[in-house]
C-alpha cells in the first residue's frame, strides 16, 4: 500500500515539476512550487525522514513561497517567451541524466539494510547516542553535537542570506529608516481571513515553541521552530498590514535577533574552548558529560531558532516593505 502511495507521490512530483517549467504565468508557477514542496515533504515522511519533512514543509512550502510572492509583487507576474538555444540545453541536460542513470544501475536498492550507507558511521550514531548524549532523537543528536560544526555553518549561511538581502535591497535608499509602503491595509477588510488568522497566530507560535523545545524528543528543533514562528509573524503582517507587522517586531530587532542567535551558537563554542575542550565540545559544560551535552544542545538550538526566525522575518520585510518602482 505504502509502495503504491509512494509511486503515486513521486509521479505527481514529476508532473508538478513539468507544470512549473511549462507555465508562463509566474504566479501559478510559484503556487505549483509550493505544492511541489508539500509533495516532497510527504515523500520524505514516507522515507522515514520526519525532521526533514517538517523542515521542507515549513521552509520550502511556507517561507519560500511567501518570499517568492513578495518578489513577484515587485517584478512581474508573466514570463515572456523568447528565442533560445533550446537544443544546446536539451543536449547538456540529457548528457547529465544519462550519466546519472548509468550510476544508478549499480546503486544499492532502496531500503537494503546491508547497503554501505547503513554500515560504518550510521550504526555508531544509533548505538552511541543513548549512552553519550541520552536524547531520543538521534537526528537532533547528530545535528547539534556530532556534526554541530556543520550546523554552525548552516546558521551562518542563513545569516549571510539575511545580510545579503538587506544589503542588496538597501541600494538606492537614503539609509535612514526605510519608508513603509503607505497604503498597506493588509487583509483587515476581509472578515474571514481576519478572524481565522487572528485566532491562528498565537497557536502557530505556541506550536513553534513546542517544536523548538521538543526537538530532543521528537522531530523538530531550532530550524523548524524558527521557520514556524516566522510564519506566524508573517501571517500577522499580511493580515494587519506591513506597518503593523513592523510595529510588532521592528527591523533593527530582527537584525539583532539574526546576529544574536549566531553569536549564541559560536559563543557556546568559544565557552567550551575556554573550559578546556574542543570547539563545541559540550561535555565540558557540566561535570557530568551527558548533562553537559544536553545543556549544550539546548543552548545552540535556541541560537539556531533565534537566528532563523529573525533572518527569515528580516528577509520577508525587506521584500514586503519595498516600494514598487
Amino acid at each position: 500500500m505504502i509502495t503504491v502511495f509512494a509511486v503515486f507521490l513521486l509521479t505527481l512530483l514529476v508532473i508538478t515539476a513539468v507544470a512549473i517549467v511549462r507555465t508562463e504565468n509566474l504566479f501559478i508557477a510559484v503556487m505549483l512550487a509550493a505544492i511541489f514542496s508539500l509533495l516532497m515533504a510527504a515523500n520524505f515522511f514516507i522515507l522515514d525522514a520526519a525532521d526533514v519533512a517538517l523542515t521542507e514543509a515549513a521552509v520550502g512550502a511556507g517561507v519560500t513561497t511567501v518570499i517568492f510572492l513578495s518578489a513577484l509583487a515587485l517584478t512581474a507576474s508573466q514570463e515572456r517567451a523568447k528565442p533560445s538555444a533550446r537544443m544546446l540545453s536539451v543536449g547538456v541536460v540529457s548528457v547529465t541524466v544519462v550519466v546519472l542513470l548509468y550510476a544508478t544501475f549499480d546503486k544499492p536498492r532502496l531500503g537494503d539494510p546491508n547497503a554501505p550507507v547503513q554500515q560504518h558511521v550510521a550504526p555508531w550514531y544509533l548505538e552511541q547516542t543513548p549512552e553519550l548524549i541520552d536524547i531520543p532523537n538521534v537526528v537532533t543528536a547528530v545535528l547539534a553535537s556530532f556534526r554541530g560544526y556543520d550546523t554552525l555553518g548552516e546558521v551562518f549561511v542563513v545569516l549571510a542570506a539575511c545580510i545579503g538581502v538587506l544589503f542588496v535591497l538597501s541600494a538606492g535608499t537614503s539609509g535612514g529608516p526605510q519608508p513603509v509602503r503607505p497604503e498597506t491595509p493588509g487583509l483587515r477588510h476581509h472578515l474571514i481571513p481576519k478572524v481565522v488568522g487572528r485566532l491562528l497566530v498565537p497557536f502557530i507560535i505556541l506550536f513553534g515553541l513546542y517544536v523548538q523545545f521538543h526537538g530532543e524528543y521528537g522531530p523538530g528543533g531550532g530550524f523548524q521552530a524558527g521557520a514556524i514562528i516566522a510564519t506566524a509573524f508573517i501571517l500577522h503582517a499580511l493580515l494587519e498590514g506591513e506597518s503593523a507587522g513592523l510595529r510588532a517586531i521592528p527591523r533593527s530587532a530582527l537584525l539583532t535577533m539574526a546576529a544574536g542567535g549566531a553569536i549564541i551558537y559560536a559563543g557556546v563554542g568559544i565557552l567550551t574552548m575556554l573550559l578546556g575542550g574542543s570547539f563545541l565540545d559540550y561535555s565540558v559544560l557540566h561535570s557530568n558529560s551527558v548533562k553537559g551535552q544536553q545543556y549544550g544542545i539546548i543552548a545552540i538550538e535556541a541560537g539556531v531558532g533565534i537566528t532563523v526566525c529573525g533572518a527569515l522575518l528580516a528577509i520577508f520585510h525587506a521584500f514586503a516593505a519595498r516600494e514598487q518602482s
Binding site: L152, A262, S278
Partner: peptide, 20 residues
Amino acid sequence: EHLPALQVVVPLLSAPLIVL
C-alpha cells in the same frame, strides 16, 4: 592546538558582531 579552529571561528564570529 586550537589554531585551525580559530582560523575559521574568529572571522565567523566577527560577522554578527560587525552587523551589530
